[in-house]
C-alpha cells in the first residue's frame, strides 16, 4: 500500500523508540501521537511539541529553523523529501560545529539531532 516508504507517524514512532534518540525521543513520540490523534500536519504537530519543550538549550533562531524543517516534512514526493533532509543535515552539521565551539552540552544536542535526521532519511527510504 505505502510502497517504499512509511508514513511520518510510524517513522517518528520508530525514531522515538530508538535508545540513542536521547532528549528527542519524547519529542518524536509526542509528535507522532498528535499527528495520529488530532490529524494535524507534521509542521503543526512539530511546532507545538517543540514550543512545549522550550527548555531545550536552543536559540530562538534554532527553533525557527526546526519549525521550518517540520513544515517541509511529508509534503512532497520521495525525491524532494530526500533533498529536504539532505539540506537539513548540512544545516545541522554547520550548527553543530558552531555549537561545539560555544558549549559542549549544546554540541551534544545538535549531534543527537543530526543523527536522528540521518535516521529519518534511512527510514523514509526503506
Amino acid at each position: 500500500m505505502c510502497g517504499l516508504g512509511i508514513p511520518l507517524t510510524a517513522a517518528f514512532e520508530n525514531i522515538g523508540k530508538e535508545t540513542q534518540s536521547g532528549v528527542w525521543s519524547e519529542i518524536f513520540l509526542e509528535c507522532s501521537r498528535i499527528m495520529k490523534e488530532e490529524h494535524l500536519s507534521c509542521g503543526a504537530a512539530w511546532r507545538r511539541v517543540l514550543s512545549e519543550n522550550n527548555s531545550l538549550p536552543l536559540e530562538d533562531s534554532d527553533y525557527m529553523d526546526l519549525y521550518d524543517f517540520g513544515e517541509m516534512l511529508g509534503k512532497s514526493d520521495r525525491f524532494n523529501q530526500e533533498e529536504v533532509l539532505e539540506l537539513e543535515k548540512e544545516k545541522l552539521s554547520a550548527l553543530e560545529s558552531k555549537a561545539r565551539e560555544a558549549l559542549e552540552v549544546r554540541g551534544k544536542l545538535y549531534r543527537n539531532l543530526g543523527a536522528l535526521t540521518g535516521a529519518a532519511v534511512v527510514i523514509l527510504l526503506i
Binding site: 516508504g5 508514513p7 507517524t9 499527528m35 523529501q81
Partner: peptide, 22 residues
C-alpha cells in the same frame, strides 16, 4: 489531499501515480 496521504505524500507516491489512494 494531505490528510488522505496521512501527511506523508512520499509514502503514497506509488498510489498517487496510479491515480488513487486506498
Amino acid at each position: 489531499f494531505y490528510l488522505l496521504c496521512e501527511h506523508s505524500v512520499y509514502a503514497y507516491q506509488e498510489d498517487i501515480c496510479r491515480g488513487f489512494i486506498t
